[in-house]
């Protein structure tokens, strides 16, 4: 990093932290501290919701995903707008009418204390671990690419987040706005520079055509397949259920719209998110597709994770890697010649020549991908702790190598902003659930508001330190990123099932709902362990099994009770 990068990076982060600390002053009551006094308007709610979902991994990994696999990941978000409408109709009015602090507080009024406690506990486990990973994952990637100390980076991000989050929800929501704008601004600047860095005779449309012919603009796949994670149907159904669960039952998101001054403001925030989310993810993936187009004319490294590459150079596998690199270079020369022919054919409008160049370039691309897989295997062999998943390193590797001074600092600030925004909501919601659903419910029921504000600050600090520790003990980032999604999907379906019962099945009571949740969790764990059903579908399984099991148990309990009653009557 050059001096100007450091200036941009540090100034951005310091200004955001100061702004958050200033916005979080005078938070005397628990309602003010945890729900910003329920005074938020819809633009802040909407941006806060979006900033919560957009973690650093969104900005690091999503462009890499488009580079490696194309844009089909965008389909994961297609169910989200439907979920926003359903939640606006069903959940928002209930949460506002009951004036709850957490989503789980509602479950006690609907079912009873055991369902509330089980669901809140599942949330604390899942969110506690995943918040740690949302700090650690970007820390490890940034530190590897820039050669920073991983522990200092992890602790540094953690401290910045604690500084803002401990000032309460108002500070979190207001800094979310700045963080999201900076993160998206950084991506826009990156896109403009990528397009300007293309060869002079290659326009944006040419680059899009090249990326499309090479299979990177595959936004919609109509083919239904339970084993592929991203197609239109898994996105609408599986992605929709994930969104319902995440926005309706996950306190990290529910807390964002509980801050609305009226139910209408909360609804508008959710609906705006529903309108913007798909285009926003499309844009981030498109940046990745354009990085791919750029690397059709400029040779990409065989492996983007430069630290892993450097480590391998010191081992017995160095010679084998050099051989792969030579193959990669030769393959690239042949491929770029075909891509050049493709561009000339596009300019000439010669469809036969386009088809022929595309077929050749695609074959060479497959060879490149197979060489990259061999390189990843060598990287793993050379050091079992190294990260062999290169997807997360593509975008940052490109930024550091090809973007001008100042912009690198801006992109890094964007990534840190995204890490801070997602994690701040995590800590904020963990503190609320710990204090409202556990401490205030079971330990200090009659304590004064001041006491609970202090308890919330201590809980925020505790979960912040816990997140830093999770990062310090985590090792493999590649598998961790996937693990965050998979691990969350173990719980999301179950939690969603409990809320579906609460909202739509009024006959089901506390005992049946608790057992339904336990059975659903067990079934999802079995499905995850013993079948190869893609993780997006676990949410549907968890929700469906939980609802059905609770209904069957409720029916058995009712018929058991009525037989006892009729038995007593016959005595």
């Amino acid at each position: 990093m050059r001096t100007i990068d450091w200036v941009v990076f540090i100034t951005t982060l310091v200004l955001i932290v100061i702004y958050g600390i200033w916005k979080g002053r005078k938070q005397k009551s628990l309602e003010n501290y945890l729900l910003a006094g329920r005074t938020m308007r819809w633009p802040t709610i909407a941006l806060s919701i979006m900033a919560t979902q957009a973690s650093a991994i969104t900005f690091l990994s999503t462009p890499g995903q488009a580079y490696v696999d194309g844009m089909r990941f965008v389909q994961f978000y297609l169910g989200l707008p439907i979920a926003m409408v359903l939640l606006s109709i069903v959940a928002v009015p209930i949460y506002h009418r009951l004036k709850v602090y957490t989503a789980y507080e509602y479950l006690e009024t609907r079912f009873g204390v055991s369902t509330r406690t089980i669901t809140a506990t599942l949330f604390l486990i899942q969110r506690g671990i995943s918040t740690g990973l949302t700090v650690y994952a970007p820390a490890v990637i940034v530190s590897l690419v820039l050669g920073w100390n991983i522990h200092l980076t992890n602790v540094g991000i953690g401290i910045l987040i604690i500084l803002i989050t401990i000032r309460g929800t108002k500070a979190v929501s207001h800094t979310h706005v700045q963080q999201l704008l900076i993160a998206m601004g950084g991506m826009l600047v990156a896109l403009i520079i990528i397009v300007r860095s293309l060869p002079h005779d290659v326009s944006l449309i040419d680059a899009m055509k090249v990326a499309g012919h090479m299979g990177r603009l595959n936004a919609i796949d109509l083919h239904f397949d339970l084993k592929t994670p991203y197609n239109l149907w898994s996105g609408l159904i599986g992605g929709g259920l994930v969104a319902l669960s995440y926005f309706g039952c996950d306190q990290a998101q529910v807390q964002r719209y509980l801050t609305g001054e009226t139910a209408e403001q909360s609804r508008l925030g959710l609906l705006f998110n529903g309108m913007i989310k798909v285009p926003m993810q499309f844009f981030i993936l498109f940046v990745g597709a354009m990085v791919f187009a750029f690397f059709q004319f400029v040779a990409p490294p065989l492996f983007f994770n430069s630290a892993a590459r450097a480590n391998l150079g010191k081992t017995q596998y160095a010679a084998q890697y050099d051989k792969l690199e030579a193959m990669h270079r030769a393959n690239f020369s042949a491929k770029t010649a075909e891509v050049r022919k493709m561009v000339d054919a596009i300019h000439a409008g010669d469809s036969a020549a386009i088809a022929s160049a595309t077929a050749n370039a695609r074959a060479l691309q497959q060879r490149e991908e197979s060489t990259r897989r061999e390189a990843a295997t060598l990287i793993k062999k050379s050091d079992t702790h190294s990260d062999d998943n290169d997807t997360n390193y593509v975008f940052l590797g490109f930024v550091v190598r090809y973007l001008p001074a100042g912009v690198v600092g801006l992109i890094l600030a964007s990534i840190f902003c995204a890490a801070m925004s997602a994690t701040a909501s995590g800590l904020n919601s963990l503190a609320s659930t710990t204090v409202v659903d556990v401490y205030r419910r079971f330990i200090a029921r009659d304590a004064h508001d001041d006491h609970h504000v202090l308890a919330s600050k201590m809980a925020t600090f505790f979960w912040g330190v816990f997140s830093i520790f999770v990062g310090e003990f985590a090792t493999h980032v590649g598998s961790l990123v996937e693990a965050v999604n998979r691990f969350g999907s173990l719980f999301y379906g179950t939690i969603l099932g409990v809320f579906v019962l609460a909202f739509f099945f009024t006959a089901v009571g506390d005992v049946a709902a608790s057992w339904g949740a336990a059975i659903s969790l067990a079934v999802v764990i079995l499905v995850a362990l013993f079948t190869n059903i893609a993780w997006l579908w676990w949410n549907a399984v968890g929700c469906g099994v939980g609802v059905m099991a609770a209904m069957v148990i409720q029916k058995m309990m009712v018929s058991g009770q009525s037989s006892v009653v009729s038995g007593q009557e016959s005595l």
Partner: peptide
């Protein structure tokens, strides 16, 4: 139709249009 119902309709219509546009985008650049 009140204001909220209009908003719900707009969000869902936008989703259908987005899917249609994404499909056309995929086809146009495939």
């Amino acid at each position: 139709m009140n204001r909220l119902h209009r908003l719900y309709t707009i969000v869902l219509v936008e989703l259908v249009l987005t899917i249609a546009l994404l499909y056309l985008f995929t086809r146009a650049f495939a």
